Amino acid sequence: MFDRMLAFEIITLIDENLKTVLQRTKHLKSADDFTSSEAGMILLDSVCMKLIAVGESIKNLDKITNKELLPNYSQIQWKQAMGMRDIIVHHYFDVDAEQIFNTLQEDIPTLISVLVKIKNELKP
């Protein structure tokens, strides 16, 4: 068995960071909003840093739960979430603004809803 409280805390941090990313990017209409200005590029850098932290936290969550928790929530492609962190860190100059934008629009809202479900199931 794993430390449920520690898992809950990690999930809370992930959830908070993802909500921050969505809040900061809610005005974006397309990936061009990242690449068309210096402010957009700074925002892209900021989003990438948050996604790195999220990916690393998901890896840590998987580790501290002995890989027992995440497989119960197959609606999320956990390996891809962790892999995005690796791509951003190791291939930063190849980061695709379109892919980051699509992740914000399509994947993060689903991930947040699953994290809420996990938190409710882990609540003490």
Rank of each mutant, 00 (worst) to 15 (best):
F2Y: 13
F2L: 08
M5R: 12
M5C: 09
F8Y: 13
E9P: 11
I10C: 07
T12A: 12
I14V: 12
D15S: 15
D15T: 15
E16G: 11
N17Y: 09
N17R: 13
K19L: 08
T20I: 10
V21P: 00
V21L: 03
L22R: 04
L22Y: 04
Q23K: 14
R24Q: 09
K26R: 15
L28Q: 03
S30K: 02
F34V: 05
F34G: 01
T35R: 00
S37L: 07
S37W: 04
A39N: 13
M41E: 11
L44N: 02
D45Q: 09
D45N: 11
S46K: 07
S46Y: 07
V47H: 02
V47K: 00
M49Y: 10
M49D: 12
M49E: 10
L51W: 02
I52R: 01
I52G: 01
V54I: 06
V54T: 02
G55R: 00
E56R: 04
I58P: 00
N60K: 15
L61H: 04
D62Q: 06
N66K: 14
L70T: 07
P71Y: 07
Y73F: 10
S74A: 15
S74G: 15
Q77P: 10
W78K: 03
W78M: 02
K79E: 15
Q80C: 08
Q80G: 06
Q80M: 08
Q80S: 10
A81Q: 04
M82Y: 01
M84G: 02
M84E: 01
R85K: 06
R85S: 01
D86R: 01
I88Q: 01
H90C: 07
H91N: 13
H91M: 13
H91G: 06
Y92Q: 11
F93K: 12
F93E: 14
D94M: 12
V95S: 06
D96N: 14
D96S: 13
D96W: 08
A97L: 07
A97N: 06
E98L: 10
I100W: 02
I100Y: 03
I100F: 04
F101Y: 05
N102P: 01
L104F: 05
L104C: 07
Q105R: 10
E106T: 13
E106N: 15
P109L: 07
T110I: 11
L111S: 06
I112N: 00
I112F: 03
L115T: 05
L115A: 05
V116F: 11
K117Y: 11
I118L: 09
I118P: 01
E121V: 09
L122K: 03
K123P: 05
K123N: 10
P124H: 11
